[in-house]
Simulated assay, not measured.
Amino acid sequence: MHGKGTSTGKRYARTDELGVPFAITVDSTSSVTVRERDNKQQIRVNVEEVAAEIKEVTDGLSTWGDVLWKYPTHSS
């Protein structure tokens, strides 16, 4: 999506400006970091679970607070 050399922070700022509610950064073949736009909290989620978790929140079936309860917060 973005060229090499662009910091993750700059990419987050761009998605924040666009109003993207969640940013997903690939950490490894098995996990990703999900960052919520408004409070900047980050969690690490298994690759196989992330799509279902984000869908539940965007469909209103759960809240970001529910997701934070299930997964440990992650700081970069």
Rank of each mutant, 00 (worst) to 15 (best):
E56L: 07
N39A: 10
E17K: 14
S75I: 14
S7F: 01
V32F: 02
V57Y: 04
T63S: 15
T33G: 02
T15G: 00
K4S: 11
R14V: 15
I24G: 03
T63C: 02
G65P: 01
Y12M: 04
E36D: 11
S30H: 10
V34Y: 01
P21W: 02
T8P: 00
T15Q: 10
T6D: 12
T15N: 07
D27E: 13
K40N: 12
E36N: 14
T33M: 03
G65F: 04
Y71A: 09
R44Q: 13
K10R: 11
A23C: 12
W69R: 15
R35D: 00
S30Q: 12
P21C: 07
T25H: 09
W64I: 04
I24A: 08
I43Q: 05
G60C: 03
I43H: 04
T33D: 06
I24E: 01
T58M: 11
K40Y: 03
V20W: 00
A52Q: 11
L18G: 02
S30I: 12
T29N: 13
Y71L: 05
T73Q: 15
E53Y: 01
W69N: 15
R44N: 10
D27C: 07
D59K: 06
K40L: 08
S75D: 15
T8E: 02
Y71C: 07
T8L: 11
H74F: 15
F22A: 06
V34C: 05
P21N: 10
Y12S: 04
D38H: 08
S7M: 01
I43W: 01
E48T: 13
N46I: 00
W69V: 14
M1P: 00
H2F: 13
H2G: 06
G5L: 01
P72T: 14
V57K: 03
I24Q: 03
H2C: 00
D16G: 05
T25W: 01
T8A: 11
W64Q: 05
Y12E: 07
E56I: 00
Q41P: 06
K40A: 13
A13D: 15
T8I: 13
S76N: 13
G60H: 02
E48K: 12
D27T: 12
K10H: 06
V20E: 01
T25S: 11
R11A: 08
V20R: 00
L61A: 14
E49N: 13
T6K: 08
T29A: 13
G5A: 04
P21A: 12
T73Y: 05
G60R: 02
V32W: 02
V47E: 09
G65D: 15
N46L: 07
R37C: 04
G9E: 10
E56T: 12
A13T: 11
S28K: 03
R35A: 10
V67W: 02
V20T: 14
Q41T: 15
N39F: 06
V20S: 09
T6H: 04
I43G: 08
V32D: 05
T73S: 14
T6Q: 09
T58Q: 13
F22C: 06
N46A: 13
P72Y: 08
Q41Y: 09
R44V: 10
P21K: 08
S7W: 00
V50C: 08
E56K: 11
S30T: 14
D66H: 09
V32Q: 04
H74L: 12
S28D: 12
V20G: 04
L61V: 05
Q41E: 14
D16I: 03
K55I: 09
K4G: 13
E48I: 07
I43K: 01
S28Q: 03
I24C: 09
A52F: 01
